[in-house]
Simulated assay, not measured.
Amino acid sequence: MGIADRLSDLGVTLPDAPAPAANYVPFVQVGNTVYVSGQISNGPDGFITGKLGADMDVAQGAEAAKSCAISLLAQVKAACGGDIDRLVRVVKLTGFVNSTQDFTDQPKVINGASDFLVEALGDAGRHARSAVSAPSLPLGVAVEIEGIFEIK
């Protein structure tokens, strides 16, 4: 079963790849590696904003991280000329969590992205990762995640 079929089985339709909001490109391909710029938490009702440890809990943060993972896959699909099945594996994610100074569950928040990618891609979704806190993120979003991917 291909990636597109697995996503469909999960009820996930990849959106159009989000356009960059400033002077950068959404992804850069070097050989078989695609570097995807940070994707911010965004849902059907717009940006997912908030601060973990203040007005958001871990479960809400994990959902925000999942939305970032979906946007990352949308960018990979665009990099692959619309064929997400060219994705070989997720190499690394770097997750940024908008959180209070005393919040320490950043890894649990970014698990929302990691768990989704493993569910959608199987072993190809397993990756190296960093999960760090940030005192604020662009537009007040809860989570931003960048990624490195191998394609064929």
Rank of each mutant, 00 (worst) to 15 (best):
G2Q: 11
G2F: 13
A4V: 09
L7A: 00
S8G: 14
S8C: 06
D9W: 10
D9S: 12
L10N: 07
V12N: 13
V12P: 04
V12G: 01
T13D: 13
T13P: 00
T13K: 09
P15C: 10
D16V: 01
A17D: 03
A19M: 06
A21L: 14
N23R: 10
Y24K: 05
V25I: 03
V28F: 05
V30H: 13
V30N: 15
V30C: 09
V30S: 14
Y35L: 12
V36D: 01
V36K: 04
S37M: 06
S37N: 08
I40N: 06
P44H: 08
T49I: 09
L52Q: 04
G53L: 15
M56D: 06
M56K: 15
D57I: 04
V58W: 02
V58M: 01
A62S: 14
A64R: 15
S67I: 01
C68H: 05
I70K: 00
I70W: 00
S71E: 02
S71G: 15
A74C: 03
V76A: 07
A79N: 08
G82I: 07
D83K: 04
D83Y: 09
I84K: 01
I84M: 08
D85R: 03
L87R: 11
V90K: 03
L93F: 11
T94H: 15
F96A: 15
S99H: 06
S99V: 12
T100D: 09
P107I: 09
V109F: 00
G112H: 02
A113C: 02
S114D: 02
S114L: 10
V118H: 12
E119G: 04
E119S: 11
E119P: 01
D123V: 05
A124F: 01
G125W: 10
A128Q: 12
A128K: 15
A128H: 13
S133G: 12
A134R: 10
P135S: 14
V141I: 15
V143Y: 03
V143E: 01
E144A: 13
G147L: 04
G147E: 04
I148Q: 10
F149M: 12
E150M: 07
I151H: 10
K152L: 10
